[in-house]
Design a protein around this nucleic acid. Structure first.
Lengths: 234, 234
DNA sequence: TTTTAATGATGATTTAAATCACCATAAAAT
DNA sequence: ATTTTATGGTGATTTAAATCATCATTAAAA
């Protein structure tokens, strides 16, 4: 898990970078070149990809599974910045603006990911303006997301933030009104800056008000409208 | 204040983009080309540069003065994301990742700024990889700053956040242990997600503990060490 | 298998900080 | 010049949510 080195078999490694999504902007040559700085890794639940303050040599591109990016860690308390699913980058900001990882990342469920040497990516970015703009777009979205989270944490109280969480799950992560969370109550709480006790209480209020169906890790949003209202009034 | 159009006098406009800092990466030609999409503007205190949800055509490069970037606005409550001084960009993320401004911006004090047409900047970025990487670096730093703020808001209580604010003022904004804030108590409170009453109380505690000297808008940090400790223990 | 640890859940208690209610200046606006 | 509005400041009260305590259940480790 710590050998982020070059794949031994070049022919294999050259196909590591997918030809779709953001990598569409790369030429075949660039893709082959970038692949040389890439390692395919598999992580099991709770595996740590990197820890805050470690020297950052790589960034992560998620192929499948789900990661959590978190920060803080005073004692056992952490703040979860975001979840990262297939087709997303993790540690982009660390790669470009820091020598160390500014967050930690761990697998929520079994995850396959590309570890990309940040120097390799930087080289490609320097030489390909369209790709650079795509990276900038992604980072812009990240700034917007974190800012919105900051505003929500500051101005919304718990029911609003729990509604945000349910929207996040259904709209961004699981893309369905009905989903099974692979997160614990503790992890869900960390995503909205609260404690597991408070989260559990608020979820049960939603359940009693028939806004959601709740059976352990299975959640169904019964009223998208009410969730939206709760999220907006905060 | 709403005419963000092209400067009438070309010879003048061509010198708008400074030759230092991040623009150092631009060739003379690129600088001239970019200058064509740039207008120099002056804003007085409380002038609004743009409001959240307005279509975003421009981004801002601060020449002198101080801006606040804020968001939210439920009633009169707002969250201040950051202050922006000379040599910094504002609305980079809106320019690259949204059709509308995702924050509002207003002048804290008299401010001179370049309004840069975002399409002009994008053109330059596409054609100049080193410049693109510099923009990516800036955005990376922005992500790190907002994430740190999110963590602080979530995990630190008031004395810790007020210490953060004082460090921010002395280390980032005014670059001295002794400074005169151009912000009101209300605006200072908005920077750390609290109310003016709570901010005032905490500042007075610091004053009584001889950690700071406080006379209206004049603040002097008497013990950098204690401020650091307070900021770190939260 | 049995022990140990992590998770989910509920009720009682505490607490940090918001809110509310003022008042005194200071700054704008008329 | 004088009314009005924003700001700075303080004390009393309220409140949302954290903390604490406890227990059942599930998962992991020995």
């Amino acid at each position: 898990m710590n050998d982020f080195g070059l794949n031994s078999e070049y022919r294999n490694s050259q196909d590591l970078i997918p030809g779709d999504g953001i990598f569409n902007y790369l030429t075949r040559d660039e893709r082959v070149k970038l692949s040389m700085g890439v390692t395919l890794m598999t992580f099991e639940r709770q595996d740590i990809l990197f820890k805050q303050n470690m020297p950052s040599d790589h960034l992560v591109y998620v192929i499948s599974g789900l990661l959590k990016v978190y920060s803080g860690e005073r004692g056992s308390r952490v703040v979860c910045i975001k979840l990262s699913g297939p087709g997303t980058f993790v540690a982009l900001s660390s790669a470009f603006a820091s020598n160390v990882y500014v967050n930690s990342a761990a697998a929520i469920e079994k995850t396959v990911a590309l570890m990309i040497r940040k120097e390799s990516l930087k080289e490609i970015v320097k030489g390909n303006g369209m790709f650079a703009v795509s990276i900038i777009n992604l980072m812009g979205k990240e700034i917007i997301d974190v800012s919105n989270k900051l505003v929500a944490f500051t101005m919304k109280q718990l029911p609003g933030r729990v509604a945000d969480l349910l929207r996040y799950f259904s709209e961004e992560v699981f893309k369905s009104n009905k989903f099974t969370v692979s997160l614990t109550r503790q992890e869900m709480a960390e995503l909205i800056g609260t404690t597991k006790e408070s989260l559990i209480r608020t979820l049960n209020e939603f359940k009693n008000d028939k806004i959601i169906r709740l059976e352990g890790k299975n959640i169904e949003i019964l009223s998208t409208d009410l969730i939206k209202v709760l999220s907006e009034i905060g």
